[in-house]
């Protein structure tokens, strides 16, 4: 893969991650800029310190904004923004 192809592939993931961060900040009324959340930081408990009520809110928000239902998924999908991106945009994972 050329460096331009690598950059394009990275940009696709970063774009999905950015969309997720904006959704999290907006839906959960966080007082931080979306970019402050990193792709790999933990989201629950440690990290963004979201709780189970926040998860419910995010389930609804993800279905509304991305058309993806994660209700039966394991908690691991919320392991990080980047992990969530794999679920929301499976093309990222398939080509990862």
């Amino acid at each position: 893969m050329t460096i331009d192809e690598l950059r394009a592939k990275a940009a696709e993931r970063q774009q999905t991650c950015d969309q997720i961060k904006k959704m999290i900040v907006s839906r959960l009324d966080l007082e931080i800029e979306p970019g402050w959340i990193t792709d790999d930081q933990p989201l629950f408990g440690r990290g963004l310190e979201l709780d189970s009520l926040d998860v419910l809110e995010l389930y609804v928000a993800i279905e509304a904004e991305f058309g993806v239902a994660l209700y039966d998924s394991e908690m691991a999908v919320f392991g990080s923004v980047s992990r969530l991106a794999d679920e929301i945009n499976p093309a990222l994972r398939a080509r990862g």
Binding site: M1, L6, R7, K9, A10, A11, R13, Q14, D39, S82, L92, R93, R95, G96
Partner: peptide, 10 residues
């Protein structure tokens, strides 16, 4: 930064 993403072969 423009290459800081999962799934890349380096």
């Amino acid at each position: 930064r423009d290459l800081a993403a999962a799934g890349l072969e380096l």
